[in-house]
């Protein structure tokens, strides 16, 4: 069984491309178009990792992170932010709030995949594809 990654992103094209790459690399990938939909999906099925945009309608990535960290059963799911916001303080702020990594768009898929794999090493459930 391969690792399950939830992609939270409001831009349809970026979402489609990210899902394609993750699936081609052997991951199970689910999608949610904002924080609220992501929460609903997580309740149904816990992912191994979340790749999450920040600025989204209805519920932002920051709000989603706060919700997860407040829930003991969900607090341990690693979350990587992927954002178009290039504020210098953005990264350290999010790491302090509990994100495990912070990618600035546009990023190389190689960089994103490297960050994902680093986190999933050693987690149960990994099969092939370098995990």
């Amino acid at each position: 069984m391969s690792h399950r990654i939830l992609v939270v992103e409001d831009d349809a094209a970026i979402m489609a491309n990210t899902l394609r790459v993750l699936r081609l690399e052997g991951f199970e990938a689910d999608s949610a178009c904002d924080g609220l939909e992501a929460l609903q999906r997580i309740e149904l099925q816990k992912p191994d990792l979340i790749l999450c945009d920040i600025r989204m309608p209805r519920m932002t990535g920051d709000e989603l992170l706060d919700h997860l960290r407040a829930r003991p059963d969900l607090a341990q799911i690693p979350l990587i932010f992927a954002t178009a916001s290039a504020e210098p303080s953005g990264r350290s702020e999010r790491i302090l709030r509990g994100a495990v990594d912070y990618l600035v768009k546009p990023y190389d898929f190689k960089v994103m995949l490297g960050a994902v794999r680093k986190l999933l090493v050693g987690l149960p459930g990994g099969t092939r594809d370098g995990v």
Partner: peptide, 10 residues
């Protein structure tokens, strides 16, 4: 950055 990201990933 958002459209650039879509273009770059494509």
């Amino acid at each position: 950055r958002t459209p650039l990201s879509a273009i770059k990933s494509s």
